[in-house]
Amino acid sequence: MPTTFAAKAKNEEWNASLTSEGALVRWALIALALGYLTLFLFVPLAAVFAEALKNGLAGYFASFQDPDTLAAIRLTFLAASLAVPLNLIFGVAAAWAIAKFEFVGKQILITIIDIPLAVSPVISGLIYVLLFGAQGWLGPWLAEHDIKIIFALPGIVLATTFVTVPFIARELIPLMQSQGREEEEAALTLGASGWQTFTRVTLPNIKWSLLYGVILCNARAMGEFGAVSVVSGHIRGLTNTLPLHVEILYNEYNAVGAFAVASLLTLLAIVTLVVKTLIERKSAPSRATQDPEWRMQPGSPS
């Protein structure tokens, strides 16, 4: 005899009660968690937009007409458009080598790829100043040949690249490791060349994580502050990226302007999070709930 809906719900409730904390504790914990997150996440998020819109929508859009702001936007895009593709190639190459082959030192490689994440952004910029700055190793040689790296675009690109090196690799490596080599081996037995195997078999299997890696790498590249601050020289209209421009506007007490620019970067961050959620939905269509429906059969002794 099939169980009624109510009987089934009661079964589940009985089952869950064995491993749950009771409604009171549960809601208290939820309140605590949400309170913490509100304080540290939602409030700052809301503050960005609230401050940006203090002068109304007109004031908000006016902030973007400033030529220095526009120059900062251009520079940010330019730096990111150079740093991200380079790190993309690195990420794919490293993930292929690590996931499809066994070699000595593999674990070491996986570990050191994470180094830029542990290094303070100020140091990330400092090391390039030491190499290419006026008093740096290559400083005199560069001055001789009239090549500017520090306080110019190349330095900004280098610092940005350094800071975002690991992101794409970290997305791809665990995924490709879990996918194994069988499909690629199958493709080879069917006569595909190495390149054909990569483009037609491997790439489609990693495309969502690859996309997220690129978007995350881009968000971090556009938002990098400390490292770029060291190498840029803060020359308005020339070597200021968006985050640096935020700092300048803020220090000039142009709060609305600063927050307006900040809001652009915040929107970028939110887009990144949305993409991540969508990708997670795609790769794990149903987060299995822990209801052991099969266990409590109708009529069985409990």
């Binding site: 069988e182 499909e183 081996e185 199958a186 037995t189 037609r200 078999v201 489609p204 299997n205």
Partner: peptide, 14 residues
């Protein structure tokens, strides 16, 4: 020119 059939099929999932 060998046809290989794997234990876990190795079909191209996408």
């Amino acid at each position: 020119r060998v046809g290989f059939v794997f234990q876990h099929y190795a079909l191209f999932r996408h």
